[in-house]
């Protein structure tokens, strides 16, 4: 009889915990989908702001398909126009029209300088590269602790603060394996892009490694679109602008 009472008590205590525990992976996938459709096209302006206020701007057209394919082409300034970047999983390439052939680049480099690196510019879904190790529920939102699935991912750990209602990130901290802060991304200006996509239009970033510097990414015309796999190949890189 005592055993039965213990069993019933255990069920009564444990079941609600399981029933209402947050499914971190599901939540992360929801955040990914709220940020962008799985396959889409978008325009972005990147602004690097120096401590003295001087700015440098880049405009890119970006296409993404599925969980591991993303490509971008620079539209401005004139010195960068026609440069294109491609990411297939962990592989990244840069094609410079004059040099002619795509060269392999690394996720920690930056084709635009500033605080954003190539992994930020050619961003895949967070759920593709990270596992959720812990979720904390706070008053206004969630705090997700993510851990990189492989060593090839740019940041070993990520902390995402997300709005509870909108399930959109408000702040992301990128950390090394030792927990050192590399950069912080701030998501601002939530905007309706049409097609049911409501997401932050501005991402600001700063880094203790680049004191006084700031980089900003402004999104425009983010819309769902499907592409053939052949778009995401080295051979297609010089033709990316034809997709506009």
């Amino acid at each position: 009889m005592l055993k039965i009472i213990h069993f019933v008590l255990a069920i009564v205590i444990i079941l609600p915990v399981y029933a209402f525990a947050l499914d971190g992976t599901k939540l992360l996938r929801e955040i990914d989908r709220n940020l962008s459709p799985e396959s889409y096209e978008s325009y972005r302006k990147l602004i690097n702001i120096e401590p003295d206020g001087a700015k440098r701007e880049f405009t890119l057209f970006t296409v993404k398909k599925g969980i591991d394919k993303v490509a971008s082409v620079f539209l401005a300034p004139a010195s960068e126009k026609g440069r294109s970047t491609l990411r297939l999983g962990d592989n990244m390439w840069l094609n410079i029209p004059n040099v002619g052939k795509p060269i392999r680049i690394t996720s920690l480099q930056s084709v635009v300088g500033g605080v954003f690196n190539n992994a930020d510019i050619l961003q895949l879904d967070y759920a593709t590269e990270y596992d959720v190790s812990k979720v904390e529920e706070e008053d206004a939102g969630y705090l997700l602790h993510l851990k990189a699935k492989t060593k090839t991912v740019a940041y070993d750990q990520i902390k995402i603060r997300a709005d509870k209602q909108k399930k959109l990130p408000t702040k992301i901290e990128c950390l090394t394996e030792a927990g050192m802060l590399i950069k912080t991304l701030y998501f601002k200006d939530v905007k309706d892009f049409g097609g049911g996509l409501v997401r932050p239009a501005v991402i600001e970033t700063d880094s203790p490694l680049y004191k006084g510097y700031k980089s900003v990414m402004i999104m425009a015309k983010v819309k769902k679109r499907t592409f053939k796999d052949e778009v995401f190949t080295l051979t297609f890189m010089p033709n990316l602008e034809s997709l506009r």
Binding site: K45, L75, I218, A220, K221
Partner: peptide, 17 residues
């Protein structure tokens, strides 16, 4: 306030540089 003027990304059939 950051702005992104959409006329900057309007595609033209021609390009000169």
């Amino acid at each position: 306030n950051y702005t992104f003027d959409l006329s900057e990304i309007e595609k033209k059939p021609y390009h000169f540089g």
